[in-house]
């Protein structure tokens, strides 16, 4: 179901108040951008895709079934757009880009060293997963979405989502438990 706040803005946009769409962009921009980054692993491209997603959402708003979940709908569009972009650019993406993405794309220099290190560790760990698995993990652990909604977003069966989440968790745990012990020892020696 659409939240009453979303519903209000959607109704206003459909009535011709384009400015009301700003509220929806502000509310979902971080998550849409994060999902695009998780798939593309590249900040500039992810920003382009995220912008395209919002433009697409704006133009498709009249066709949106308001009984369904707006959040699920917008995340589904994000995943599809990101995966399509990834497929079209796949040949150009090499391991070198992935490394660049890790340092230039993910790394936010405005944050302090400790949170930067932690963030970097998590992002390195996430790179061991496939694009879809990264999206699933973000939706499940960060946004706390249900398996059913994740299945709708990723266009998979619930069983498939559960299996992939289980495998992803195991992979992440294997990386994170070692990385965390190393990270903790670095912090302690400093």
């Amino acid at each position: 179901m659409v939240t009453s706040e979303d519903q209000l803005f959607i109704t206003q946009v459909l009535a011709g108040n384009t400015a009301a769409f700003e509220h929806l962009v502000r509310k979902y921009q971080d998550m849409v951008f994060t999902l695009a980054v998780r798939v593309l692993n590249h900040h500039e491209e992810a920003e382009e895709v995220a912008q395209d997603v919002f433009v697409k959402v704006f133009h498709s708003l009249s066709g949106f079934q308001q009984k369904s979940n707006f959040k699920t709908w917008i995340y589904r569009i994000t995943c599809n757009e990101s995966i399509n972009r990834l497929r079209s650019k796949k040949n150009k993406i090499s391991m070198v880009n992935l490394e660049e993405g890790l340092t230039a794309g993910f790394y936010d220099q405005n944050q302090n060293l400790e949170s930067d290190e932690e963030k970097k560790i998590v992002q390195q760990a996430l790179l061991t997963l496939s694009e879809t698995e990264r999206v699933m993990v973000t939706l499940y652990y960060y946004d706390e979405m249900s398996i059913k909604d994740i299945a709708t977003i990723t266009d998979m069966t619930e069983t498939n989502v559960k299996t992939k989440l289980f495998r992803s968790r195991q992979k992440l745990y294997e990386v994170l438990k070692d990385q965390y012990s190393l990270f903790t020892s670095i912090i302690q020696t400093n």
């Binding site: 502000r26 921009q29 951008f33 433009v55 960060y142």
Partner: peptide, 26 residues
């Protein structure tokens, strides 16, 4: 551990002009 790590990593933030760019395009 995974939940805590993902939460700590947080969300990525788009550029400051993101909202403006989207609205201009629209």
């Amino acid at each position: 551990i995974v939940r805590m790590s993902i939460k700590k990593a947080g969300l990525e933030k788009p550029g400051k002009d993101f909202l403006h760019s989207v609205m201009s395009k629209i």
